[in-house]
Computed example of a mutant assay.
Amino acid sequence: MSGAKQDRPRVSVVMGVYNGASQLTATVESILEQTFEDFELILVDDGSTDGSSEMLREFAAQDRRIVLLHQPNAGLTCALIKGCDHARGEFIARQDVGDRSLSRRLEKQVQYLDRHPDVVAVGAGCRRIGPEGEFLGETIRDQSPEQITAAFLAEGIGISHTVATYRTDAYRSIGGYRREFRFAQDTDLWHRMTGVGQLGELPEVLFEWGIDMDGISSTSHDRQRQLAMLAQESYRCLQRGEDDHEILRRAQQTSWGEIPPTTVISPRVALASAEFFIGSQLYAIGDHRCRPYLLRAIRQRPFWIRPWVKVVLSYLRLPVKDA
């Protein structure tokens, strides 16, 4: 499948990589094994220190569709800016380490964008996979682009960033990702994208979201919430024809400055919340494997009542025999 590259591939898949060695192979292979073959895969090594850099070099040596870029560690937003700047495709498709695109993802999203010229970015349904490979459920949304765009503008319910594919020309016409948004870079992008077109979503599962403890126990959620609100504020400001320079200054400070101590989440509390989240997902689908997660949440926060309740209910309502 590696044949000579086209002058301009239809799709540029962009992925930032920072210390993802344990999950890198499965993620990269999920793109290389797509049924749609007219793409380039741009891998941006964001200063990895765990062996990912060596793995990326091996991938690039084995497949001519891979473009490998390097930068000192600067975070996902900067990696995406660098990757998208090098993108030659008509469309840009996102991919994150730890997630897997199902084999027809690019084929279906390109077909959708070809059929819907007013849609500038399209997502898809996702299957959630836990740290030990547990099935945690699926999310599918069967709505029109008008409904999805309206829901995003009204409630902030956007399309999933890691499975999004969008028009390169539209991306560049609005200025692309902005460095000021270290987090919530997708929320900022989708707001500005709605100025040139609609958001869409395919009502079928086209990727698997690998949920790991490090990701959901991050202590940066407060920054993410603040930056999402600033992205919305910036959008409204631009809609009124006003300058958003002051908002971007605040976003820069929120991204890289110190958070007041009252809003900092301790690693212990964050880990307990992550364990509880996974346990709750498993409990909701009747999987007895919820118990170890809930018990670990209790060990982290013994006086937190919610995991205690779920543990008790799991023994009352779920099958006793392990599956």
Results as ranks from 00 to 15, higher is better:
residue 284 A to N: 10
residue 110 V to Q: 02
residue 279 G to N: 02
residue 224 Q to A: 11
residue 124 A to N: 11
residue 201 E to C: 15
residue 65 R to M: 06
residue 312 V to D: 02
residue 252 Q to R: 14
residue 201 E to V: 15
residue 237 C to Y: 03
residue 116 H to T: 10
residue 177 Y to V: 03
residue 1 M to S: 15
residue 228 A to G: 08
residue 69 L to M: 13
residue 213 M to Q: 12
residue 10 R to Y: 07
residue 88 R to G: 11
residue 7 D to F: 13
residue 130 G to W: 03
residue 161 H to K: 09
residue 37 E to F: 05
residue 319 P to H: 06
residue 293 Y to C: 02
residue 41 L to P: 03
residue 159 I to F: 07
residue 274 A to D: 11
residue 28 V to I: 13
residue 163 V to T: 11
residue 213 M to W: 05
residue 221 H to N: 12
residue 188 D to M: 06
residue 321 K to F: 05
residue 212 D to M: 11
residue 136 L to A: 04
residue 100 R to I: 02
residue 275 E to Y: 15
residue 235 Y to Q: 04
residue 207 F to R: 01
residue 219 T to N: 07
residue 203 P to D: 12
residue 196 V to R: 06
residue 269 V to N: 14
residue 234 S to C: 11
residue 32 L to F: 08
residue 41 L to K: 00
residue 290 C to A: 07
residue 236 R to I: 05
residue 45 D to C: 06
residue 76 L to N: 07
residue 164 A to C: 15
residue 124 A to T: 14
residue 261 P to Q: 06
residue 200 G to V: 06
residue 282 L to P: 00
residue 101 S to D: 07
residue 294 L to T: 00
residue 100 R to E: 08
residue 36 F to K: 05
residue 279 G to W: 02
residue 284 A to K: 10
residue 103 S to P: 12
residue 23 Q to M: 14
residue 94 R to W: 07
residue 72 P to T: 05
residue 263 T to D: 15
residue 229 M to N: 10
residue 206 L to E: 10
